[in-house]
Structure formats: C-alpha cells, structure tokens
Amino acid sequence: MSDARGKAGVSRIDAKFAALRAEGRGALGIFVSAGDPDFETGLAILKGLPGAGADMIEFGMPFTDPMADGPAIQESSQRALKAGMTLTGVLEMVRAFRAGDQDTPMILMGYYNPIYSYGVDRFIEDALASGVDGLIVVDLPPEEDRELCLPALARGLGFVRLATPTTDDVRLPAVLKNTAGFVYYVSIMGITGTAEVPTDLVTKAVERLKRHTDLPVCVGFGITTPEQAAGIARCADGAIVGTAVVKTIKASLDHEGRATEATVSDTLGFVRGLADGVRGARRPAPHA
C-alpha cells in the first residue's frame, strides 16, 4: 500500500468525499503557496487549515513563471521563492504536516518544469513518501500524459485534471480519461482571481460534467466570500478558494513583506468564515 493511501486502502481523497457525501455537504478546498511568506509561518498556516475547516489542501509549488495564476498567487509564489522555498522544501512541509494529520487530502499544484528538473521518478517516489495524495500540473495537457500523469497513476498518486468553460463534449473524454480523485472545474476564463464566479453557469457546467464522469467535481477560480463558497458547495462537490486566501496573507504582512503576529490568525480566521459558509449550505438529496 503506497503512502498516498489512507485507512483500509482507500485514498484520502476518495475517503474524504465519501465522508462528506454522508454528511450531505460539499468540500472546502484551500490553496496556499508552500512557504508563503516564509517556511515557519507557512507551516503554521498549513497545520492550522484542517482545524479551521479546510477539507482538503491544494499546496502550491512555487515557480518563477506561474502563467495560469493571477497577480495575487504570483506574488505569493514570489514571496515563497524569495524566502528560499524549493521543491524539496515543499515536500519537507508536507512531511511535517503529515506528522500530525493523516486524514486531510493534500494535492500539490503547480507547473511541470520544477518536477522535470527534480526528476519525474524521484519526484513521484518522494511525493508519495511525504504523504502527497494527488497532483495538479496545469501545463501538462492529456497529450503529454506519458510525461508524468501515467507514471504517477501507476504508483497510486492521483492526477487531477482541469476542465474549463471551453472544454466541450468532444474534448472532455480526453481530459477525463486519466483523471483521478476529482475533476477541477475552472469556473471562469482567464487567470485566477480576476473575476467573480457565475453560479448559475457553474451549476449547468457541473451537471454536464456529471454526465461524463462519476468523479466528484470541485469548482475553483473566483470564489472570494463565504456566501459564494456556500453557493458553489450546493451545486458542486466542493468549492476551492485560493486567491482570497493569499490576499489575506498579504494583507497581514508588514511593509517589508514579512509575517506579523496577525498573519496566521488572520488567515485561519478567514478560512473559518469560508468553512462556516460551506457547512451551512445544504445540498439537494441525491436522486434515488
């Protein structure tokens, strides 16, 4: 049994969504960049996320050219890199997190270049040993599955794929073919954190995706408030919030971009508000 597996041989991701279905609610996924604004503060935030209500964590692998991310997440990545974060450091943080939490799904999110430089086989082995459950690599399309996706899946490391408003029914089977864990639906076009999520359109999109896959569908990009998170949690299997979280981190820093006494508490307080919204959102009962 690989280290990406939880109790009874069921992956942490699968186990989490099964538990949430039993509760009748959607998941709250939280994105933070590893090591933002520094290793110690970032680790304190990471360790505090489950207690603040995060059901799963997307852990950003800082990269110098995060082309799919908006300004706020780009800045969070730059802060982490400036503080000395590396891919080795990311995995070290996951190991430290796993020392106190064996249940919360942890998905690494980022770009292929750092993984390629690290070495694909070595990365997969080290990610599993650290306690990583899945990967989101935004610049590897299905046509490049042999690069990372298939080797990862063969070892029991989930590969989560993005679907967008322009992913039509012709393209969708290729996107879903080797997807594992859940499908990440990008609710708006463009880069992260630059527009509000259109809940009515998302509802229709989730319904369409559900006709093509039995995997949970989580929605991200554009969710900034507890009310928006609740709205998404009613129509999808999960709401993922990133930009608003890293903006909260930034707002707590001093004029030189360093952590203050408020950084951890402000960030976790914001996540608690999102979690309250999601937990208060009742989902329609599934059809018999």
Rank of each mutant, 00 (worst) to 15 (best):
172 L>Y: 09
159 F>S: 08
214 D>I: 13
83 A>W: 01
100 G>T: 14
167 T>A: 01
142 P>R: 02
131 G>L: 07
85 M>E: 02
168 D>H: 07
205 A>C: 07
145 D>T: 07
104 T>V: 12
92 E>Q: 12
90 V>I: 06
166 T>S: 12
134 G>Y: 00
126 D>I: 08
116 Y>A: 15
144 E>Q: 11
165 P>M: 10
119 G>D: 13
145 D>A: 10
134 G>V: 00
176 L>F: 04
156 G>K: 01
211 R>C: 10
154 A>W: 01
175 V>N: 00
172 L>T: 08
108 L>Q: 09
147 E>I: 14
104 T>E: 09
205 A>W: 05
207 E>H: 12
218 C>D: 11
225 T>A: 10
211 R>E: 15
182 F>K: 01
165 P>S: 08
133 D>P: 06
168 D>W: 01
171 R>Q: 13
129 A>G: 14
105 P>V: 09
200 D>M: 13
208 R>L: 12
95 R>G: 11
162 L>R: 02
131 G>A: 05
122 R>H: 11
84 G>S: 02
136 I>G: 03
89 G>I: 04
142 P>E: 05
120 V>W: 07
158 G>M: 09
214 D>T: 13
178 N>G: 04
169 D>F: 06
179 T>W: 00
82 K>F: 10
106 M>L: 15
151 P>V: 06
162 L>H: 04
92 E>D: 15
217 V>Y: 00
167 T>G: 02
185 Y>R: 01
128 L>I: 08
107 I>F: 06
166 T>F: 06
118 Y>S: 04
206 V>I: 07
124 I>E: 12
137 V>W: 00
183 V>N: 03
152 A>W: 03
121 D>E: 15
84 G>D: 03
128 L>F: 09
119 G>N: 08
214 D>M: 06
203 T>R: 14
80 A>S: 08
196 E>P: 06
86 T>D: 02
177 K>N: 04
143 E>W: 00
160 V>M: 02
179 T>C: 15
102 Q>S: 15
223 I>T: 12
80 A>F: 04
142 P>D: 05
196 E>Y: 12
221 F>Q: 08
178 N>W: 07
142 P>A: 07
175 V>G: 04
132 V>N: 00
140 L>Q: 06
